[in-house]
Design a protein around this nucleic acid. Structure first.
Lengths: 187, 187
DNA sequence: CTGGTCATGTAACCCGTTACATGATTTC
DNA sequence: GAAATCATGTAACGGGTTACATGACCAG
């Protein structure tokens, strides 16, 4: 059970509905945690009945009603407990890496196509992260912000996400180039 | 079902037993795929009964017997099919990132400890990857090896793993320093 | 004689994914 | 008129993790 804590951490930013959370997860959180909307709705229900978050109904006229959630004090305690306990080693699962590892035994064309695609996605994510970072630090220089800002957790994780995607872009571009060079030479 | 392909890709390197594969997974493959030994034994059985790999019994006197597996032609076909199909987006799941994101609301001491720990792990992995890369390219320069080497798939994925761990080390070190600076200033 | 390595599995459980379900409003 | 957005769920399935199980050899 670990999605709980990802959701709690995300709700530290403020009040969110399940729907809004799902979008947040796609944007900022996605680079170190991923969840589908259905999972979020379920997890929010559980967290609420465990008293770790509190929800309030917001009636809307022109749109469907929604429920907004905030972290309770019990939720903060749970997060503290979690943050103190040893983290399990992180893991990545990436189909594309498996494919690149197999590239000597299979036709590289499909792999190259997917490397290009991945590079494009990385470019988009880089823009998103840079936007998020700018918005969070406002007028402050990064160093000053990190020394004196109120809320630096999300900034620090965005920094990691940005670096990850920059490396991703770099690697995908170079790997695609290497594979293209070889197929051109072979024929 | 995707562990299948990670196992197939790993078996392209040669003949391995379940036990040896488990170690391989810990070392080189772990940075983009992870599996416990039990899962590997099960998956190997399935792959064998599906005809994608072939096993042969090796009787040992001083140690327990083992079964070594190789990829069959049907296995290569399956890998080709997989490599050509669209990859699902990769994902990371990292407890430590969730903790860093929560660091404004909880005691940073535990998080700092885990960042240090993670930095040490990253250092170890960097050494492992550098060793693997050196061994694979032998006497050749990297560029030449990538242009003309026989088997570059594992080299390319190691490059990605190395970069990832270097970034990891860097980020963990810097993040820990930022958090230390703030707790020192507050008191 | 304790702990690590070699070596291979089974069974139960839980979490995550896929598929299904609904329905009004806004934008192109 | 079609497609995207807002908004929230249930149910089935399958894969991944945890726990359990065994046993011989070798190094400190």
């Amino acid at each position: 059970m670990a999605l709980r804590h990802a959701v709690l951490a995300a709700l530290l930013d403020g009040e969110y509905s399940g729907y809004e959370l799902a979008k947040t997860f796609d944007a900022g959180v996605a680079n170190f945690w991923h969840a589908l909307p259905q999972q979020l709705y379920l997890e929010l229900s559980k967290l609420e009945s465990d008293g770790l978050i509190a929800g309030r109904q917001v009636v809307q006229e022109t749109r469907p009603n929604k429920r907004l959630f905030t972290v309770t004090e019990a939720g903060i305690s749970e997060l503290s407990r979690f943050a103190f306990a040893a983290a399990r080693p992180s893991f990545i699962r990436d189909d594309l890496m498996v494919k690149v590892r197999s590239v000597d035994a299979v036709d590289p064309a499909g792999v190259i196509r997917q490397l290009d695609e991945r590079a494009r996605i990385a470019t988009t994510k880089i823009d998103i992260f840079e936007g998020l970072l700018r918005r969070q630090r406002g007028d402050l220089e990064e160093e000053l912000f990190l020394r004196e800002g109120d809320r630096i957790g999300p900034y620090l994780t965005c920094l990691r996400g940005l670096r990850f995607e920059q490396e991703n872009l770099d690697w995908c571009t170079r790997t695609a180039a290497v594979l293209r060079g070889r197929t051109a030479a072979h024929r």
